[in-house]
């Protein structure tokens, strides 16, 4: 018996005006796995994430999350169901402290966003949980620095911490190691693997670094020019001729 997929996408398509950017994509992500979406530059990976996370509304097809139709649901309600995402370009609250960066999603997680009277400094429970999360991503020592003062790699970790604070079921990671040096990349990969094992969170990531993809993902989808080109285990994809051609062609074009 196969487990129920946490994310199920049926014939998803999207167009901007007359320009078709995504067509006929169907895929499923099983709970508790680490799935990757790869493809040459401009294949539509980020657009795909924007559709799944609710930044855009798709023009065709449907999206099911945990058995629920979320195709037309606004982004913030998808988050409440446990569908979180990170962004390709670091997306944090730059002038808040690292701790506050995590307190924001934590307050939302505990439905405290609309408490007007109690002082934030008295929310000791939230603060303790935020410190725990920072401990997990290795930023405990930076808690009281302003996020924009941190090194680039650490800022990306802040974003992971923000996502974790919402206690996610599925996390869409858009190029988590983009722009990182090898040492930072290794730290990030290690962290993602550890999180997947510890918390049972499902990860669905895009990545341009094939070493990273093949070392973390158990199942791969390949996107090319807005449609699905291939899928399979890392070994199957490695041997797939079509995929090789797409990558060669893509890299020659760009």
């Amino acid at each position: 018996m196969t487990p129920r997929p946490i994310l199920e996408i049926n014939r998803l398509g999207h167009q901007f005006g007359d320009f078709v950017v995504m067509r006929d994509i169907s895929l499923a992500v099983q709970a508790g796995t680490m799935t990757a979406l790869i493809g040459p530059n401009g294949a539509g990976k980020t657009t795909f994430y924007n559709l799944v996370s609710g930044r855009y509304q798709p023009t065709q097809g449907s999206i099911f999350f945990d058995g629920l139709d979320i195709t037309r649901m606004p982004a913030h309600r998808r988050v409440a169901l446990g569908l979180l995402r990170s962004f390709q370009i670091t997306n944090i609250f730059p002038h808040l402290t690292v701790l506050e960066n995590v307190l924001v999603p934590l307050a939302l997680e505990h439905h405290k966003g609309f408490r007007f009277w109690k002082s934030m400094s008295r929310e000791r429970d939230l603060k303790r949980q935020a410190e725990e999360i920072l401990e997990r991503v290795g930023l405990a020592s930076e808690a009281h620095r302003r996020a924009h003062e941190l090194a680039y790699g650490d800022q990306r970790l802040v974003e992971i911490a923000i996502v974790l604070a919402r206690n996610p079921k599925l996390v869409l990671l858009d190029e988590p190691t983009a722009g990182m040096n090898p040492e930072e990349t290794e730290r990030m990969v290690h962290l993602i693997q550890e999180l997947a094992q510890q918390s049972g969170t499902t990860f669905f990531l895009t990545e341009h670094d094939m070493n990273v993809v093949f070392s973390v993902a158990s199942y791969l989808y390949v996107l090319h020019q807005g449609s699905l080109l291939a899928q399979g285990t890392p070994n199957e994809i490695r041997g797939n001729r079509q995929v090789k051609e797409a990558y060669l062609g893509g890299s020659l074009d760009s």
């Binding site: 930044r55 409440a80 979180l84 919402r166």
Partner: peptide, 12 residues
């Protein structure tokens, strides 16, 4: 600071 990030951690 960042209304996009805030929307994508579940705030209206």
């Amino acid at each position: 600071e960042n209304k996009q990030r805030l929307a994508f951690v579940g705030a209206d």
